[in-house]
Nucleic acid binder design. Structure first.
Length: 818
RNA sequence: GCCCGGGUGGCGGAAUGGUAUACGCGAAGGACUUAAAAUCCUUUGCCCACAAGGCUUGAGGGUUCGAGUCCCUCCCCGGGCACCA
């Protein structure tokens, strides 16, 4: 029979009353911060995949609690942001109103999954008491020079009508709505995450995270060790030769003598046009066209195009004059926006040179001879056609040639600064004010940002005004710009009328620091309490989705490092231990609203009871692996729980009834195995062991209640209600020492010596094939084992000749090679 | 193209280099029942009439007394990055 709501409510009440899940954050001795990525509350409610993750995290937390830790397992809602807002637009309900409805539904569902949440500390990112501090962080970023404004080509989602960070563009598409992203020239706020590139890399060495995530972050940061070489420019109209120059970045300075041209990005071309260096009509036209083309598509098309700029560079290696081309295959956002073209040893350069009939000169050779190259050779070799460097190994030549050419080492990163502005309504307004008067006078809070002031901290939060029309209009300005009342503000410096920044900040800023706020969510005077932080942070266990590898998981590390630098905290990696959860599919497809295959947990919890659902989700696969949701599987765990109930009717009346040695061994082995499995988040095998144990206990004529007690404790993290129910029933036994709740532990201990076997089955193999499994006493010697085997009637036939070789693995296996 | 995961019965999955297929689902047969559901018992990788035996972890090689596990080559699925110089 499915678990009743009454039973569930009964225990929820007891737990609340006794604050089983509410550790005293200031006082506890053995803190354990058990954190899950908080949900982005969509209107359709909690997703079965989130339920699996959350209950999985909870299984782990309950286990830790029973082991004697004061577990803090908070929950909240990441409710600000484009997702919620887009949905609000779709159904025509104001996001602020929608949030309240969604919130209620979400908390109801989160309450129903049986987790040991610390409800007193829940928070929502759209609560002004929360985003006040999100804004405070922005202000600190500005004050420390880590927030800046810059006009540049940025990612623009035409459907969401806002800019996006690079991390939010997935193969040219908007992370949220999958529309093709285009480039737009806009002035935006950025956070200087690139200042932390090296430390973000270094920190990865110190944290226990899945390799998958670490590799993704390393690739995203994209550290590349190379060299910078300067090419003087000649042929600029009206300018002296060699007065100006261009820097290029390369990882292959050994190919310097093979340079036959230089290619620069259209953006750099535009700069040079503005400087008056490029005057060629054709080149100017090309730059205009290619920049325009890019505004239609985020990625430049595969087809390489280009035009000669009219000016030349001097190769500092051999003093040769090479033409400078402008081409779409050169990225403006990486390196210097200019590359040296070495067609013989770079595939892309080869393609370009072939297309535009530029010369190709081989300078690296595998055998020291010249070849008629049909394709680029990018490998190592011996230098040829390279003047005094001929004969040098290419690897060794890198340093020497760079030095000779007057260049130097340079490290480049792929990582770009975090674009945090959003031209949307449903987010924390960026707490900045622009004063035109100050700007005109060249004044500002920071030298490099004239006219800009951060909002006085005492005036935070800058409240998001209620607006009837909150629709993004695609003008490149937030809907907030339409509210005159909101925009008008006094300049913090000169007190004249100034205007507020009207963009809101990225949702990922909201979630970059929530784990601090959980620890003290109601404090109005500061973002967090240093004493409590010291006690609880960094987080002991963090679990969440792999899709955040280079989003949330990168930003959150960056913000922690900034806090560390500002001496707010004493650690710089917020999550020393992180584990990913697998993805749950339905009929093999990702669950999504558009596919209409979202599984709502409510019906299942209603029908089977929350314990059966929790156990089914845990039994599917290890937490880190995903799986396909099929309701058929729930019957297994439902039956299991019914049998647990039935077993309670079979308890021995007295406590004296002992257990067989075999049963005792199974019990102790189960304690060990289940503990280890839960520690490794392998709940599936923990449940399997519980099933094995239950099968054995059922076969007893009557079950000693002590054995049942242990069983219930082992079950407790997985099925919190069932275990509590039958645990509490044990109080009718006189000698039972009842804890307030089974969930307060202690976790049972096993004795290693009780697990030790007296006899075992020795696997007998002949030429690697198993022929028998014979009972033998533990610790038997090879000689004694052989004796028994040779006497065995069934095995005699194999030993017509004596074995050439014998491999003996004590207490396990013997293999005869005949 | 590059970088990560992964490929084991009808299905989900289990296996420190040492009995592959634990545990569960499903299926088949039986018991109980007027009947069904529920429950309980038995069987359940493949070949073979049984036994004996043989075969089997995507494919093919290799190392080893012994390989799902280690190495090489390749195929397929999932994910990430992608003109990064």
């Amino acid at each position: 029979m499915a678990q009743s709501k009454t039973l569930q409510n009964k225990w929820i009440k007891l737990w609340r009353k006794n604050k089983v899940y509410e550790p005293d954050l200031k006082k506890v001795k053995n803190p354990f911060y058990n954190l899950m990525m908080f949900p982005y509350p969509s209107a359709e409610g909690l997703h079965i995949g989130s339920v699996r993750t959350f209950t999985g995290v909870d299984i782990y937390g309950r286990f830790k609690r029973m082991q004697g830790h004061d577990v803090f397992e908070p929950i909240g809602l990441d409710g600000f942001g484009i997702n919620s807002e887009n949905y609000a637009l779709k159904i025509g309900k104001h996001p602020a109103k929608l949030a309240k409805i969604t919130e209620k539904n979400f908390y109801r569902q989160l309450d129903a999954i049986g987790n040991g949440f610390a409800w007193n500390e829940c928070l929502e990112t759209y609560d002004a008491e929360y985003y006040k501090w999100t804004q405070w962080i922005f202000v600190q970023m500005f004050k420390k020079g880590l927030a800046y404004r810059k006009k540049s080509p940025v990612n623009w989602c035409p459907s969401c009508k806002t800019v996006l960070a690079d991390e939010q563009v997935l193969s040219g598409e908007c992370e949220r709505c999958n529309s093709a992203v285009i480039k737009k020239d806009l002035e935006q706020w950025f956070f200087k995450i690139t200042d932390y590139a090296e430390r973000l890399l270094e920190g990865l060495e110190r944290i226990d995270w899945p390799d998958q995530i670490k590799i993704a972050q390393r690739n995203w940061i994209g550290r590349s060790e190379g060299y910078s070489i300067t090419f003087p420019l000649v042929g600029i109209p009206g300018e002296e030769n060699r007065k100006h120059s261009v820097d290029i970045f390369t990882t292959r300075p050994d190919t310097l003598f093979g340079v036959t041209y230089i290619a620069i990005s259209p953006e750099l071309g535009l700069e040079w046009i503005d400087k008056g260096w490029i005057k060629k009509e054709e080149a100017i036209k090309y730059v205009d066209n290619s920049i325009l083309a890019r505004s239609r598509k985020e990625k430049s098309s595969e087809e390489k195009t280009g035009v000669f700029s009219g000016i030349y560079g001097i190769n500092p290696g051999n003093q040769e004059k090479v033409p400078i081309w402008i081409s779409n295959y050169v990225l403006s956002s990486y390196g210097t926006g200019a590359v040296m073209g070495v067609p013989a040893h770079d595939e892309r350069d080869f393609e370009f040179a072939t297309k535009f009939d530029l010369s190709i000169r081989e300078v690296i050779s595998r055998d020291g001879r010249d070849h008629d190259l049909r394709q680029a050779y990018a490998g190592e070799g011996v230098l040829i056609n390279s003047g005094k460097f001929n004969g040098t190994n290419s690897e060794n030549a890198k340093e020497e040639i760079t030095k000779f050419a007057g260049g130097g080492k340079k490290i480049n990163y792929r990582l770009r600064d975090w674009l945090v502005s959003r031209q949307r309504y449903w987010g924390p307004p960026i707490p900045m004010i622009f004063c035109k008067a100050c700007g005109d006078a060249g004044r500002g809070e920071r030298k490099d940002m004239s006219g800009w002031y951060s909002v006085n901290e005492k005036e935070l939060p800058v409240k998001l005004p209620f607006m009837e029309n909150y629709k993004p209009d695609g003008t490149g300005e937030s809907p907030l710009a339409k509210s005159k009342k909101f925009v008008r503000a006094r300049c913090p410096k000169c007190k004249s009328w100034a205007s507020r920044e009207t963009d809101v900040s990225d949702t990922f800023l909201d979630s970059s620091w929530y784990y601090f706020r959980y620890l003290d969510p109601k404090d109005k005077t500061r973002p967090f309490d240093r004493q409590i932080i010291k006690k609880w942070l960094p987080v002991n266990m963090y679990i969440g989705g792999a899709e955040h590898a280079v989003l949330h998981l990168l930003y959150v590390r960056f913000i922690a490092k900034a806090f560390y630098d500002w001496k707010l905290i004493g650690f710089d990696e917020p999550f020393p231990k992180f584990r990913i959860n697998g993805l749950i599919t339905k009929d093999g497809a990702k669950m999504s609203k558009s596919r209409g295959n979202i599984v709502n947990p409510d019906d299942y919890i209603e029908k089977f009871g929350v314990d059966a659902v929790r156990m089914y989700l845990a039994f599917m696969a290890p937490l880190g692996e995903g799986g396909d949701f099929r309701d058929a599987g729930i019957s297994g765990t439902t039956r299991f729980l019914a049998r647990v109930e039935k077993l309670s009717e079979k308890l021995a009346k007295t406590s004296k009834e002992g257990l067989s040695e075999k049963m005792e061994r199974l019990l102790h082995f189960s304690i060990k195995k289940i503990g280890e499995d839960i520690e490794n988040l392998h709940f599936n095998t923990a449940i399997s062991q519980l099933m094995i144990l239950l099968n054995s206990l059922e076969s007893l004529p009557s079950v000693p209640w002590q054995a049942y007690e242990i069983f219930l404790k082992l079950l407790a993290p997985l099925a919190p209600f069932t275990s509590e129910e039958y645990y509490q029933q044990l109080k009718k036994h006189k000698s039972f020492r009842k804890e307030l709740s089974v969930h307060l532990g202690p976790w049972p201990k096993y004795e290693a010596k009780k697990i030790a076997l007296e006899s075992f089955k020795l696997i007998v193999q002949i030429n690697g094939k198993t022929r028998a499994a014979l009972d033998m006493p533990v610790g038997i010697t090879e000689k004694d084992a052989e004796k028994r085997i040779f006497e065995d009637e069934n095995l005699k036939k194999y030993f017509s000749t004596s074995p050439k070789k014998t491999i003996f693995v004590p207490d396990r296996l013997i293999n005869f090679v005949i």
